[in-house]
């Protein structure tokens, strides 16, 4: 991973600012790319890389998402879970996510258990169960691989909330329609990264463009032992985790 970072650093001076210390460097977001006019969805396929070994459970991502997207209190487009796994008991990990981890976690001092933080976000599945079940076409897979909701068309039947295996959807209490992570579609199509990635201090998560051959995601997928959540659900999730423990569900 260091190699890839060095490659990146050599690419442009701007990256000196952007490149994080960690193994998941922020991809070279083309900040200059003219948003509204010049965006061609067919040239992108959005995904995300999450490195469990980088997450410190600070809750910056949860708060940033709230501020960027006006997420209603008590609901989450992204959240953090803290896992504590004792010995061989993979079946019964202790998991907590107080208020989605938005204010961080009370410090733990448990030397007997394996502990780690797991950021969760919509997996932007290629075979999305939520898109499959929407009766009217109000939720859909965008040409650049983001699962979005047409707020003016959703009738609030909640079938998609049930269909999502990851608990990533909720009904917006004000609009009475379904709401979910958009991968900050309004940002990434302007050449910015998502709010959660922007605010993550350790580079634990990085937006990725699978269609960009220079994107560090390719190196990330090659170098790390990578996993997706609930692969048996066959949703072809596009949020890739490095160092994900088997106890995580």
């Amino acid at each position: 991973m260091t190699i890839s970072r060095r490659d990146l650093l050599s690419q442009s001076g701007k990256l000196l600012i952007l490149a994080p210390v960690a193994a998941v460097p922020a991809p070279p977001r083309r900040a200059s790319e003219d948003a509204a006019a010049g965006y061609d969805p067919s040239r992108h396929r959005w995904a995300m890389a999450i490195d469990i070994d980088k997450c410190i459970g600070c809750g910056n991502c949860v708060r940033a998402c709230e501020q960027e997207n006006d997420v209603p209190a008590g609901f989450f487009r992204t959240w953090i879970e803290r896992y504590q796994v004792s010995g061989a008991d993979q079946e019964h990990p202790k998991v907590e996510s107080p208020d989605g981890g938005r204010n961080g976690f009370p410090p733990s001092s448990n030397s007997n258990a394996k502990e780690f933080y797991v950021p969760k976000i919509c997996n932007q599945c290629s075979e999305s169960p939520c898109v499959q079940v929407c009766p009217v076409g109000a939720t859909f897979d965008s040409p650049d691989g983001v699962v979005l909701v047409d707020q003016s068309y959703c009738l609030g039947c909640r079938y998609c909330v049930h269909a999502c295996p990851y608990g990533c959807r909720y009904i917006h209490p004000g609009r009475h329609t379904v709401d979910k992570c958009t991968f900050c579609y309004h940002r990434i199509t302007r050449g910015l990264t998502t709010a959660c990635c922007e605010a993550c201090p350790t580079g634990a998560r990085a937006l990725a463009d699978l269609k960009d051959p220079r994107d560090p995601i390719h190196e990330f997928l090659r170098v790390n032992k990578v996993h997706v959540l609930k692969p048996h659900m066959a949703t072809r999730a596009k949020v890739f985790y490095a160092s994900l423990d088997g106890a995580v569900r």
Partner: peptide, 12 residues
């Protein structure tokens, strides 16, 4: 126990 934070509200 633990439920995903969006699961607090029952849908149907």
């Amino acid at each position: 126990g633990y439920i995903y934070p969006n699961e607090l509200e029952l849908q149907w």
